[in-house]
């Protein structure tokens, strides 16, 4: 069986006067983990939204994505009112085909909630949960339906230190199971520690596409300094 590839070619996206993505090209192999780093407005979220099928590119193409079972974790979500965390997950479990009938979907959703430590708030309104809990809930929905590519937009930005460690363990577990992962983060250290490759974006352009060892070689403070050098002090 040949390995699958996701190929992004000359992708561009504009929001009014803002050029969010400017001719971005790269490839990801099956089972690889990519970290996207860059200052705010660099184009990371736009790229993930296009890959996730929730936004359209103005030009360029994405090849191979249709051969993957995809899961997308947005950076944040306005959860619908009058919907408990459990109901929200049951809905998505059924939509993703992880379960056909309500009792089966209930069991799948409860397991997903337990896996991110939200079992005791299953019946609480999702919109009333803390930001960190909501981020865990968003991660839980990504695990439904056994995806083989997971796209995550700053998935750990609101997590407390305990759940940030748990998230890293879950990401490692996804990688062990052969799942392709692409995630964005502001933390260079986190990116180089968790990913195979780190893609640095600035003002919509892909500045560097390096193996994570490149960044690790600078050491903790050195990697941050190198990041600032490349993006010109961090101004977006």
């Amino acid at each position: 069986m040949s390995a699958r590839f996701l190929r992004v070619s000359a992708l561009s996206k504009r929001y009014g006067a803002l050029l969010a993505l400017d001719g971005v090209s790269f490839e990801v192999g099956e089972g690889q983990c990519l970290a996207l780093i860059g200052p705010n407005g660099a184009g990371k979220s736009s790229l993930l939204r296009i890959l996730g099928g929730t936004a359209r590119a103005d030009s360029g193409k994405v090849e191979g994505i249709e051969s993957f079972r995809l899961a997308y974790v947005p950076d944040r979500l306005e959860f619908p009112s009058s919907t408990s965390a459990l109901d929200w997950l049951v809905f998505l479990a059924r939509l993703k085909g992880a379960a056909r009938r309500r009792p089966e979907a209930d069991a799948v959703a409860r397991r997903a909630l337990e896996s991110v430590g939200l079992g005791d708030v299953a019946d609480k309104e999702a919109s009333g949960l803390s930001r960190g809990m909501q981020q865990r809930l968003l991660f839980a929905q990504a695990l439904l339906g056994e995806p083989d590519i997971v796209l995550m937009d700053e998935p750990a930005s609101a997590l407390d230190p305990i759940w940030a460690i748990d998230w890293k363990e879950k990401l490692a577990s996804l990688r062990r199971s052969g799942t392709t992962v692409i995630f964005s983060t502001h933390r260079v250290g986190e990116a180089s520690a968790l990913a195979d490759r780190v893609l640095l974006f600035h003002r919509g352009r892909l500045l560097r596409d390096e193996a994570s060892g490149y960044w690790r070689a600078f050491g903790e403070g050195g990697a941050e300094r190198r990041f600032l050098e490349l993006v010109g002090g961090g101004a977006a």
Partner: peptide, 8 residues
């Protein structure tokens, strides 16, 4: 963002 998530 719910519409986008559902579309994904």
């Amino acid at each position: 963002g719910m519409a986008a998530l559902v579309r994904s």
